[in-house]
């Protein structure tokens, strides 16, 4: 039986997912934008708000999807996988609670700590921005800071590389987030790839 797959999201990543799937299934796409690369592969593209659970699950029902793949993090944070699962359409992507491993950095560090996962750097989380700033004052320059929550890949700032300790405090004070994850001990080393983590 041929699977009917709804792919959620319209970026480069989803274009790559579409390419990997298109030969082996009937592919539909819903996204906030019409990606011409995906449009060339999919049966149809429906432009909708991918963080609206009802809109995505209605779309999946209309096309009789047997599977859904969720590309970006924002729909996961909005419970799109929960809505699809509840509609009887298996979503390849965690439910909102599972996605917290990404969407809530303070939870992420605590989770890794509680389960004794190796490779978790020292960290502190703060509910009070001023306490975070005091921590920066006390612990010098080998720190990275991040406001809690999804920041579109632009949240982490490394003191020394990207900004001074004073600028880090300004950054945290100026953030619209209620909580601050980190500062984390800065690691001396090399990241696994050269990314520009830009939106």
């Amino acid at each position: 039986m041929t699977e009917t797959v709804l792919l959620v999201g319209g970026g480069g990543r989803e274009h790559a997912i579409a390419r990997a799937l298109v030969e082996d299934c009937t592919l539909f796409n819903c996204a906030g934008n019409r990606n011409p690369g995906i449009a060339a592969l999919a049966e149809e593209v429906e432009v909708l708000d991918t963080t609206n659970p009802q809109a995505v699950s209605s779309c999946a029902r209309e096309i009789d999807a047997t599977l859904a793949v969720i590309g970006p993090e924002a729909p996961l944070a909005a419970g799109i996988a929960d809505a699809l699962d509840d509609a009887g359409i298996y979503a390849f992507g965690p439910r909102e609670a599972g996605a917290r491993i990404e969407t809530d950095k303070a939870y992420q560090r605590r989770f890794l700590d509680e389960h004794g996962i190796p490779g978790n750097p020292e960290f502190e989380t703060f509910d009070d921005t001023e306490r975070a700033c005091e921590y920066i004052d006390d612990h010098g320059s080998d720190l990275a800071v991040k406001p809690a929550g999804l920041t579109g890949g632009k949240g982490v700032k490394v003191i020394g590389d990207q900004l001074t300790a004073a600028a880090a405090k300004e950054y945290l004070r100026g953030s619209d987030y209620d909580r601050v994850a980190g500062p984390q001990a800065r690691l001396r080393g090399r990241r696994g790839a050269e990314y520009g983590r830009h939106g």
């Binding site: 990543r13 997912i17 970006p72 993090e73 969407t103 696994g192 990314y195």
Partner: peptide, 21 residues
């Protein structure tokens, strides 16, 4: 991030990376 004492976790993501996918 790879360090002299092995790989350390920067973060976990709940989906494929973009561009890494």
């Amino acid at each position: 991030m790879l360090t002299a004492s092995g790989p350390k976790i920067v973060e976990f993501n709940a989906r494929f990376g973009d561009p890494e996918a």
